[in-house]
Design a protein around this nucleic acid. Sequence first.
RNA 1: GGGCGCGUAGCUCAGCGGGAGAGCGCUCGCCUCACACGCGAGAGGUCGCAGGUUCAAAACCUGCCGCGCCCACCA
Length: 750
Amino acid sequence: EPSLAYDPAFQPPAKPGKEQVPISRPNFVELCERLTAEDEKTFEELFRRLGLSVDWQQTYTTIGEVSRRASQRAFLRLVHRGLAYTAEAPTMWDVDFRTAVAQAEIEDREVAGTYQRIAFDIEGDDGERIEIETSRPELIPACVALVVNPSDERYAPFVGRTALTPVFRVPVPVVAHELADPEKGTGAAQVCTFGDVTDVVWWRDLELPARVIVRRDGTLAAGRFGEPGWESRDPDAANAAMAQLEGKAAKQARKQIVELLREGGWLVGEPEPVQHVVKFYEKGDRPLEVISSRQWFVSTLDLKDALLERGRQLSWHPAFMGTRYASWVEGLNQDWALSRQRYSGVPFPVWFPLDDDGEPVYDAPILAEEAELPVDPQDDVPPGFTAEQRGVPGGFVGDPDVMDTWATSSLTPQIAGRWEDDPDLFERVFPMDLRPQAHDIIRTWLFYTVLRAHLEHDSLPWTNAAISGFVLDPDRKKMSKSKGNVVVPTEVFERHSADAVRYWAASARLGYDAAIDDQQMKVGRRLAIKILNASRFVLSMEAAPGEITEAVDRAMLCALAEAVDDATAAFDGYEHAKALDVLETFFWSFTDDYLELVKQRAYGAAGTDGAGSAVAALRAALDVLLRAFAPFLPYTTEEVWSWWREGSVHRSAWPLGSEVIDADGSERDPGVYEVAAAVLSAVRKEKALAKVSLKTPVDSITVHDTGDRLRLLSQASADLREAGNIRAIDQAEADTFSVDTVLAQPDAAV
RNA sequence: GGGCGCGUAGCUCAGCGGGAGAGCGCUCGCCUCACACGCGAGAGGUCGCAGGUUCAAAACCUGCCGCGCCCACCA
């Protein structure tokens, strides 16, 4: 409640009740700051727990001094270059929030409405009429013309003549304009100031007068009919009718005027209920009105082509998201309405001089000096004035408006790069590499950021845009507070661990929605536990690592090198889910096949050299795998890393295939590993089908395969015999792979 | 009205010109000295529908159907 004074003792109720509590503006701002501090803590705890690699010394707030200065500086520079301007213009307006809103904050909603067919009399004649159809008859007092398509022969005789509005008997011209659609309604439309954006176009193009009747709170009020600008052939009737609409909101006024139309015989037929699409402020409950008001704008319409080109220069991940940006830019129909009639926000660094009558001179704004920023024109005094001159004729007044929040957010790269405050840093980091964000704010955060960088730096703000989908609830529904289906991150951390949640999140591709999936998180948890156990096992081998001489050891490392290179390529293409998949596939084969194959040799079954080769290969693989999994499972990998390595795995280098195996220049060939794993798997299958334990001895197996693969198999036969408890391995050349297995007879074992 | 994306095993998805796949779930078996928070195995699909191109189509082209989203001057 703006009239209340600051109350230092004010305490909000412990629990919010239904009753609104009046509070002064300074107290309100204080509470906002308290809540913000709490929320910041909550977010930091959440981000830390998630294991995000945030540099916590590089934080900023969008209302903080650095951001206010950057926002105001960027704004002033646009004003000086003529790219930001103040103008009285019809703008989309929310009658509940009582502020202008930008095109980006508007959304369409389908609502129930009614079309009424209404007759306008042609003046000075014998009962000729033009009929129109409208869903907003309450705007008839604001009607300034009737419009038809120039090619519409039905109405050609009327163009240039004068019609009289029903009820109010206001003379309005019948005019022609291309945008009038012969197919819609009757083909003739009333032009009102202002019913929608099309009205604004007609009003501007056809240079029509304005008769505004919608006030900023959404209620109706007209001028006095009969006076200049409000001509009427029957002023008394017009004023009497208007008296019935005065002060009513659009919806109520609509009912009222339909009655007046009916009484006067101007209503043709009965009103027809329809579902139609109406523009709403995304946070609003009532349809937007178009209201003329003084606002700050930033030029965008003249830049469409340049902004489309910026969109083409940007690397989109996935690529099709660039289409959304393009269709948004192509559909722009107004400059960016930058000012908001709100309490909280970054103020404009602007004052207006007051003339001798105490009226603001909007054409001559007084701009702050860059060196003084940030300023608050409500407290600070403009250059050349004294505090006593505030609000008095010949003095000045501060611009009361604040900027659209996107005015600050669109400077994120500049603010984070300490634009103008640290030129060396800025030079090094701008343009940045990557903007990660979801697709819902392409038209706002992404678009405005591209716009600001284009205007201020003649460049893109970053080279890549990684556009994610939404996290949906477990039933694939969009989460919303009102539906009560919001899943709080801390809940899933508690249930599954941060690494498991990251695993699930990393499995979702950019651009596609992902539903909260407990099963998938359990799989992630299982992978994490498997890494812990396998690592413990590898590091428990007592044999000293030696030279990697065994063919199967080298082959496993070749397979690992390929997996790592595939994962690297996937990451380079912003396909983190694919990178994870490749690594995971290798890892499960590593534990299920390779570890089983070399387990006995690593224990020493084939002597010191064989053990040394196995242990060295195992450790080399583990070292690489931990680094490769580190971005996905930061806690698990860091834990294992701490068992045997110095420092943090997150500061170690990303692994490359070349460091694993190519050092000696030999060719990569994972063949021995693949063939041995296939044979081991075939033997396990026989045991499973026979429903016997996997340690059941095997008398002999006969491997049928091509000569090449049999030669590879020979290099791993000792490991294979140990792993499968096989006494003899026979080979037979064949075109296709198969294994005959002869299990040992139970009585033979006795 | 225009556009984008998606429709593959019960579920979540990968594959995007030459063998129909993975994980989960389900069924069966196994306490094998890293892990029973585990291990092994099995069953399960006319790849939305209809045409076309091709020696060959889940994949390419055309049309349709369904779902989701974006944009639109919606009188």
